[in-house]
Design a protein around this nucleic acid. Structure first.
Lengths: 206, 206
DNA sequence: TAATTAATTGGCCGACCGGTTAATTGAAAA
DNA sequence: TTTTCAATTAACCGGTCGGCCAATTAATTA
């Protein structure tokens, strides 16, 4: 219906955001210029300042958008579940697949690490983390998880095993498999199986 | 002897490299200017082009130098050790502390991921990886390590648990500890203890 | 010593940076 | 229709960027 509107602020804002994300995640904040973004979006660069105030501003917006999506999804994941070992395993798998289909998250985090970005927007997941820790704690009380490890570390390890894979998978293929030949199609799943074994055996009570 | 030489190309080249590494790892490639580097080194910026050709050139040199240092050290680490579970644990701890005292490595590796660096210098550690896998395999044969997990994945997990910590420690402090207050001095060691428990319990035969 | 080579310098260049401004245009309100 | 306001544009700003070059200076060679 509005397909031919000559002006559609929402749409231009959106396509600026999309273009910005593409370029930022490809080259990082410092290497990206405003005109890179406007060029890719096919929109004058002035409009970036009009909608986002500054280069910093649109980078914030990009991050925020992605992290809101992230934590919304994650919260829903935790919402209606009492923790049992089975459900912990389930959310482990869910998280792994979430990262797999949202590689942007991994790149954003890596860029923020390198550019020493201390943005608060990342910490929307504090609530998420608290819930996760709560679940692990009760799992420990119920005797399903060994109690001699700080729940914070258990959760962090959980996250790390997944993130690290999607960050260094390429190195794995090159250095561990000796190149591109003979990589199994389901490499991701094979890895997921392996870390499940290590992780869940590792956190089980003796 | 040569302490007072007015010109010492090797020395200037070296101090340019050092300054470059400092600034690059501090601010990132894109946010660093040639004059930042030359300023810190106290050397005219023209010399950067003289020795390294371009900004890209000196960046490559920085990465290469650090990565060579990395794999050389790692190889020495593995050199004279038969694998027993005790030694595996020892090299786990060694690797962790190596990363702790060489944070540049973690940053460089993150850069390589983001820049999709297919540099040959990365593959220096293929030899490294092969040795590590060999050790784990023999550990499996001896019944010290469970055999139902691919040694490649065991090694990769090993590396990941350590790397991920030094990359996302800040997020851990913010999101998991609720800010800077009350962080134990020996947080690194506490984490190391935790992942040791998980990892070694996880790879033990039942 | 004289000639040659290489290290080092400061000054300069065009390009591009992020950001601002004033003017133009389209859509919606009156 | 007229008015009003937001969306959009192009031109422009001072500043900095990476890179280049010609001149100078120290070490090496003949």
């Amino acid at each position: 219906m509005n397909a031919k509107r000559m002006r559609d602020p929402e749409a231009t804002r959106a396509s600026l955001l999309i273009a910005a994300e593409e370029v930022f995640l490809e080259k990082g904040f410092g290497n990206t210029s405003i005109s890179d973004i406007s060029g890719r979006a096919g929109i004058t660069k002035s409009l970036i300042h009009h909608y986002f105030g500054s280069k910093e501003g649109i980078w914030q917006a990009v991050k925020q958008r992605r992290f809101n999506y992230y934590s919304d999804r994650q919260l829903k994941m935790l919402e209606n579940s009492e923790l049992t070992l089975g459900l912990l395993r389930e959310s482990f798998i869910l998280y792994f697949h979430f990262l797999k289909s949202n590689p942007e998250i991994v790149r954003i985090l890596a860029w923020m690490f390198l550019e020493r970005d201390q943005d608060d927007c990342v910490h929307k997941d504090r609530e998420l983390v608290e819930k996760g820790i709560e679940r692990i704690k009760s799992g420990q009380k119920m005797g399903q998880i060994r109690s001699d490890i700080d729940p914070k570390f258990i959760l962090f390890t959980f996250i790390g095993m997944c993130q690290h894979w999607f960050q260094d998978k390429e190195h794995f293929i090159l250095d561990f498999c000796g190149g591109e030949k003979n990589i199994p199609e389901d490499l991701d799943e094979l890895y997921l199986d392996a870390i499940q074994k290590i992780f869940f055996e590792g956190i089980s009570p003796k």
